[in-house]
Design a protein around this nucleic acid. Structure first.
Lengths: 134, 134
DNA sequence: GTTAGTGCAAATGATTTGCAAACAG
DNA sequence: CTGTTTGCAAATCATTTGCACTAAC
């Protein structure tokens, strides 16, 4: 197993962590970068990417790929496997869990003799505010 | 609505269509390009991309994004909405349909007052041959 | 002949990496 | 001090686009 090196609490990392705490929606690295700059915090885009990558590896953030290919991130509340209903317009998110789905996936793996099966499901739509606004 | 322009049957397009017919697995543009060259057919990578894109737009092929971000394509048998169980190693694919899942998605949209909800589900694993081989 | 299709090379856009300077512990 | 972390610029990588050229019909 990999030795976990201790992390240093830099100004940048603190800012990113705080931003993630405040946000209730998925954000892209670029969006976080912009948000931080708007707050007057100087953080490099590279640093945002590096920290998000690191947190993703430690399962501290959920990562979802948007339809346009950009990755979006959000703090991870549940440790369990779950899915999301994400607003295409504002990123507002509802966390979902569904045992049936997991069971279905498991039974399919068995039926078709696949091993090591993982699944990714994401729902994208327009939340109430954004449907109204449009 | 857009006028549909008729397509010309070029040597390259024919080769790509035939390759898709023969393949029972998902392939990336690059993999198709390689396969065609190995057959001795000279087709530009750009052309492969352009034709796949076109077919995807007309729903003649299914497109799935692999975990590494590369898009993979396969001829589309079913016109209906469906999902796939794809072998991570060889691309072998089982087509799946599940009404429960569709219903679940629909009820969630209603419950959380989202509109215009789409979903993407893909299962990745190792097929029997590939589990054994490894 | 007209117009769609091709293919190269160059552009794109998100993400990553090399490396020297900056800083946390 | 000593090893992390940062940030810029340059590199990657899949995919797209400009444009002159070729080929379908």
């Amino acid at each position: 197993m990999a030795l976990m090196q201790r992390q240093r609490l830099t100004r940048q990392r603190t800012a990113i962590l705080q931003l993630l705490q405040e946000a209730d929606s998925f954000l892209s690295a670029q969006e976080m970068y912009d948000a931080l700059r708007n707050k007057g915090l100087k953080v490099g885009l590279t640093t945002v990417y590096r920290n998000l990558q690191m947190m993703a590896d430690m399962n501290e953030v959920d990562v979802v790929r948007r339809e346009d290919g950009e990755s979006i991130f959000r703090r991870c509340d549940a440790g369990d496997h779950h899915h999301h209903l994400v607003c295409r317009s504002c990123g507002f998110t509802v966390e979902l869990a569904n045992d049936q789905l997991e069971n279905w996936a498991r039974s399919l793996s068995k039926k078709h003799r696949f091993s090591d099966v993982t699944h990714h499901l994401e729902l994208f739509g327009l939340c109430r505010s954004c449907s109204a606004g449009a």
